[in-house]
């Protein structure tokens, strides 16, 4: 999959690499609508470029909100992103601070 990343998929991957960790955050940072972000996330995960993990229920319960699914770039995703960076120019994104609640 590394060689055939579409621009949108590459931007989503770049967003996750920049620290955006769940769907809504990726949407907000990249400006891509939900109907594109989520299918891209499924494809990237199926291709092994990202992995997902549900956060701990206790964290969500403490904050009185539903639990969240966090995404993380895999080593294959890192190399695919480096490859895509040669072809695409990604939008500037603020690097999100890392949280330890994953």
């Amino acid at each position: 999959m590394t060689g055939d990343l579409t621009y949108m998929a590459a931007v989503v991957l770049h967003s996750i690499r920049s620290g955006q960790r769940y769907g809504f955050q990726i949407m907000a940072a990249s400006g891509i609508p939900s109907g594109t972000v989520y299918p891209a996330l499924r494809r990237l995960e199926k291709g092994g470029l990202i992995r997902s993990q549900w956060e701990k229920a206790a964290v969500a319960r403490a904050e009185q909100r539903p639990i969240r699914k966090y995404y993380q770039v895999t080593p294959e995703g890192e190399s695919a992103l480096a490859e895509a960076g040669k072809r695409y120019r990604f939008p500037e994104m603020e690097v999100a601070p890392k949280k330890a609640d994953g």
Binding site: P33, S34, T36, Y38, P39, R42, K46
Partner: peptide
């Protein structure tokens, strides 16, 4: 609602997979 309409596209993609 527009945000949730994206769920339809997400569902269609999963349906075809």
């Amino acid at each position: 609602a527009g945000h949730c309409a994206g769920a339809i596209r997400d569902g269609i993609c999963l349906w075809f997979e």
